[in-house]
Simulated assay, not measured.
Amino acid sequence: MNESGAIRFHYLLRAVILLLFALYIGHLVQQEALHYYVAPKLARWIRLCPVPLALMALSLGIQALFGKSSALCDCEHRLPGSMFRSSALYGLFLLPMLLGFLLPDRALGSAAAAKKGIALTYNLSEQESKENFTAANPYEAEFAELAARLHAEPVITVHPEIYSETFGAIDLYKKQFEGKEIAVTGFLYREGTSAGKASYAVSRFLVQCCTADATPFGILLNPAAQISLPADTWIEVRGKLEIVTHEGRELIGITPETLTPVPQPSTPYVYTSADSITAWEQLQNAGAVK
């Protein structure tokens, strides 16, 4: 059994850590920076976390300061026997918290994309039909329907709400989309090649839950394009879709006609859509109203 004084000390320390977590989440909410770390569906619940965390911290603090020694519980677990062990244990919680407060809140960029490996293709089974957008299996049915609707547009606008789904549909039917006009916004990703030449892509991070699972997706810019902008510059690219060869693979890419620097959007990441067809229709209706 641990002495009551030691238990009180650890109760207080844990209360402080819980309170710091509550303050950090509150800080992210106040700075409107929570979207840099978690997806919107998860963020709505994270916003509520400071309340239970603060209540738990208050409960531990009251027990540590005013609780009867007979009521204190160490749960039959031995507490760290030295200051070094205590520092190592609680440092696992305090160090990430300290980094969170000290480091700037910003979106992932080229450095993270290079480490994760940027995806320039969806690796779906390419369809050969040039007249009808048919699906080879039920999984690709939504891509096929979206592809047909996108192909009918004079200029394909890649909306953030269906970013990954749009490129999935285009990649699936790349031959049918060759020569189509497209407009897309993202950050400029620069990648060196073995030949010493640079290749470029316009990219965004796809987030499922949080930035830990963020996946960089991009579309290759025609290797012949001369780009003087630095990496991570947010750009709007307008041009034609072309099939290009990159590292021995045929990929869909863009031959830019205009490449314009733009401000980073308030929500830099993109997220999967549960129903890309409905989302596309809503976007079209919203555009018609404007």
Rank of each mutant, 00 (worst) to 15 (best):
A88Q: 10
R14C: 04
L172F: 03
A225N: 03
L28K: 09
S69G: 14
R149D: 12
G186V: 03
Q264T: 12
G91T: 07
Y271T: 08
F187L: 07
I219R: 04
D213V: 10
S129M: 08
A39V: 05
P230Y: 09
Y24W: 15
Q208C: 09
L55R: 05
P52Y: 08
P223V: 07
V38I: 05
I243R: 12
G192K: 14
S125Y: 10
L283S: 06
T272M: 11
L92F: 13
L79T: 08
E181I: 00
I62C: 03
R85S: 14
E247G: 00
L72M: 05
I219A: 04
I162G: 00
Y163H: 07
L206R: 11
A33Q: 13
E153L: 14
L150A: 04
E247R: 11
L72A: 02
A198T: 12
K41A: 09
D105K: 10
L55V: 14
S86A: 15
L108G: 05
I235E: 01
K116C: 05
F217L: 15
L188N: 03
S110L: 02
V155K: 08
E165N: 02
A225M: 05
F93Q: 02
E140C: 04
R8K: 12
Y269Q: 06
A198R: 07
S87G: 11
T211S: 14
F84K: 12
P138V: 09
Q31F: 00
G196R: 05
P256Y: 01
Y189F: 15
Y163A: 03
K180I: 03
P138Q: 10
I118S: 00
A201T: 02
F21T: 02
L124Y: 08
A274G: 15
K116A: 14
I243F: 01
T233K: 08
I254W: 03
T260M: 11
S82R: 13
A114F: 03
E236N: 11
I227K: 04
F217M: 12
V244S: 06
L99E: 05
E178Y: 12
R78F: 06
G196N: 04
I252E: 01
H246W: 14
H27D: 10
A144V: 04
S164I: 08
Y11A: 00
L99K: 06
F143I: 02
E250G: 10
L60Q: 01
D275N: 15
V16Q: 01
K41C: 01
L150F: 05
L146G: 01
I219Q: 02
W234N: 03
S273V: 10
H246F: 15
V270I: 14
K116I: 09
R204S: 10
S199Y: 03
L103E: 09
E153A: 15
Q284C: 07
D171W: 02
A224L: 10
W234F: 11
G26R: 03
L28W: 04
E242I: 11
L65A: 13
L55E: 05
T193D: 08
F177Q: 03
Q127V: 13
P40K: 05
P50T: 04
P96H: 13
A22D: 00
P261S: 09
C209E: 09
